[in-house]
Amino acid sequence: MLEELQRLQAHISVLKTRLAQFESENDALNDQKNSSDEQHHAQIVQKNGIITSKQEEIETLNEQLTDSRAQLQQLNTDATALADRYSRLEKSCTDLKNRFQEILAERNELRIIKEKMQNEQRHAQQEIQGLQQERERLLQKNEHAKAKVEAIIQRLAILGTAQDHHAQEIQQLAHPTETNEEA
Rank of each mutant, 00 (worst) to 15 (best):
F100L: 14
N142A: 12
S53F: 02
K148Y: 10
Y86H: 02
Q132S: 07
H144D: 11
K91Q: 08
I58G: 03
I51T: 08
I113G: 05
A70C: 03
L96R: 13
E90S: 14
Q74Y: 11
Q129Y: 04
M117D: 08
I113V: 13
Q129S: 03
R85Q: 02
A70I: 04
R107L: 10
I58N: 01
E56C: 01
A105R: 10
C93T: 09
G130E: 12
L131T: 09
R135H: 12
K116A: 12
R69Y: 06
L131R: 04
N108K: 00
N119S: 05
T94S: 00
A124C: 04
E134N: 06
E134Q: 14
T66P: 14
T77H: 15
E115K: 11
N119G: 15
L75E: 02
T80H: 14
S87T: 02
T77Y: 15
R99D: 10
Q55V: 13
S87E: 03
Q101R: 14
R122P: 12
E120K: 06
D84Q: 12
K97I: 00
E115M: 13
N119M: 00
L65K: 10
H144S: 08
Q133R: 06
L110W: 00
E57C: 15
L75R: 02
L75K: 06
S92A: 04
E90F: 05
N108Y: 03
Q74I: 08
N98F: 07
E134P: 05
Q121D: 10
R99Y: 02
E56H: 15
T94R: 00
Q133L: 03
I58E: 10
R88D: 14
E120G: 08
L82W: 01
L139W: 00
R137W: 08
E57N: 14
A83S: 06
K54V: 02
A70F: 01
L61T: 02
K146N: 05
L110P: 01
R85L: 15
E63L: 13
Q74E: 15
E115F: 05
T60N: 08
L96A: 15
S92L: 00
I103L: 11
E127L: 09
L61V: 07
Q101L: 02
E109G: 13
S53T: 09
T60A: 07
I58K: 07
T94G: 00
K97N: 01
R137H: 09
R85M: 12
S53R: 12
N142R: 07
Q132Y: 04
I51F: 07
H123S: 11
F100R: 06
E102K: 02
Q133T: 08
Y86P: 02
H123P: 02
D95E: 14
K91Y: 10
E115L: 05
L89G: 14
L96N: 11
